[in-house]
Design a protein around this nucleic acid. Structure first.
Lengths: 123, 123
DNA sequence: GTCGTTGCAAAGCGTTTGCAGCCTA
DNA sequence: TAGGCTGCAAACGCTTTGCAACGAC
């Protein structure tokens, strides 16, 4: 049985309006502006729940803390800047078909593409 | 000034011959079979060094510990099984050109593709 | 009033660091 | 022999868990 709370509302909204993947601590900081006494554990608990219900998805890239972003249903393309380590969400840059075929026996259900390089600011 | 040691040799060989991305602990376990008193710290130190010299590359996917694999120069496609959580390295499944274009200002230097689904064993 | 949710603090875990002894070049 | 490398244990930072108080329904 799930209940509606102000904490859950604020945390979800922080992720939803960010426009880019956020770390748990970034999410907690943002949400703390509206709920000063918000605990980290609560943030983590909501991220976990939202993640399990597929409302948010995790985006990882090597050597960096995990990040989470709003799952709007479509497969995304991400861009990781090797200089400043920021992560960007790119949109409308590719079709809906996986860019690679898997060998016989593998059932492909989804995919993700990560581009590496220099962002406009660092390039 | 870098020196050649048995530990470094064994650790590198473990990654090189695995054929799939390994977690630091898997690497440590494999290497420990040849050097029983091998410390975890040594394993981590070598992974870090190899990673910085681009001899091995990190492969992450959400909710899983980081993994490392031998970098043979070509961009790879990985397959993550949602059932057993194993990670596979697929080969020769796509061209060398990035599957997506980045907006003006972004300089693309490399890319990675991750497919999600069911592996032959779990499907 | 019930029972899921919260904040806090402690525990857990993977990774890193300090250090004295070891070993390669 | 010099100085990098190693094993061990302590330290660290992020995440999870235990628990009593709180608040949604």
């Amino acid at each position: 049985m799930k209940r509606h709370t102000r904490q859950g509302e604020v945390i979800l909204s922080a992720i939803k309006t960010a426009g880019r993947p956020l770390t748990p601590l970034e999410i907690h900081e943002l949400a703390s502006k509206k709920i000063p006494r918000l605990g980290v554990a609560t943030t983590y608990r909501h991220i976990k729940t939202l993640s399990e219900s597929h409302q948010v998805v995790g985006v990882d890239y090597p050597g960096q803390p995990p990040r989470y972003e709003w799952a709007d249903g479509q497969d995304k393309v991400h861009f990781a800047c090797r200089a400043c380590d920021k992560l960007f969400a790119l949109e409308d840059t590719m079709e809906d078909t996986p860019p690679a075929k898997a060998p016989k026996g593998f059932k492909v259900q989804g995919f993700e593409v990560m581009l590496y390089g220099m962002c406009p600011e660092c390039g």
